[in-house]
Design a protein around this nucleic acid. Sequence first.
DNA 1: AAAGATTGAACTATCAATCTTT
DNA 2: AAAGATTGATAGTTCAATCTTT
Lengths: 146, 146
Amino acid sequence: VNDRAQIETPLWLALLHAASRVETRFEAALAESGLSISKLGVLRTLVEAGEPMPLSRLAGKLSCVKSNVTQLVDRLEADGLVVRVNDPADRRSILASVTAEGRARFEAGRTAVGSVEQELFGAFETVDRERLSRLLASVAKGGCGS
Amino acid sequence: VNDRAQIETPLWLALLHAASRVETRFEAALAESGLSISKLGVLRTLVEAGEPMPLSRLAGKLSCVKSNVTQLVDRLEADGLVVRVNDPADRRSILASVTAEGRARFEAGRTAVGSVEQELFGAFETVDRERLSRLLASVAKGGCGS
DNA sequence: AAAGATTGAACTATCAATCTTT
DNA sequence: AAAGATTGATAGTTCAATCTTT
């Protein structure tokens, strides 16, 4: 059942490899808008929230560590896409607020992402999309017990 | 056709998320052997080659940039798992050579990886494994036209 | 000039430690 | 003490620039 002497790439490496390729593709598309996947994630979260948000809440939404958000917001602030404002309700807290420029760049980024999305997954059959979605969810959930 | 007000996570984000989870799981398992996925990749490449290899060739095998290999080998050398040796045939070239300790650690790492592999994908039906493999290969190949 | 390797800068991410405010 | 945020260290990665050897 294994005639060819071809080395079977382990499934987990195939997954990591595919993700790396996809990531690179999206990063390249976003670079034209001066964004990155991480930065777009911050902007999306803030735009969808519709109001300034404490950095720690941002970290929760992005499923990452707080110190990561600190640096991300540093760079976004340097780009002029976000500003830090004091939280009137809690002086420990600092809110991240999207600027008008940030909103504009988010829209540009969203468009770019949409194109790549279409390019990479547009030709997939609906069944395949659903299968892939289900399998990935299963893997992400921790493996075995579905 | 979309009764629930549930926000559908885009497929590419699901892919990146799943990969991130899997990566974290393997990194955690390898950390017990003092390794990482990247370090294991270098060791595997060298062990499988059976002989010392120029850093640039290593970069080719690992599909990464040369400067990355330089730093990776720096750390592996500091760990005592790899040594740099001069290439007798070409004085520009520097060969990476696995040490005995490096071989031992590679075996430990491989065992650890096998366990996690079983844990994460062991319960998958053969069909599912094949489907996932096929879909990931298709995505990695650049998307649409399979 | 071209190839092999290194260095320095930047981005993303984590962890541990710290500082301020509650 | 606990919560919010920052800083400093480390890992991994890329890119651009540099140095040596061919």
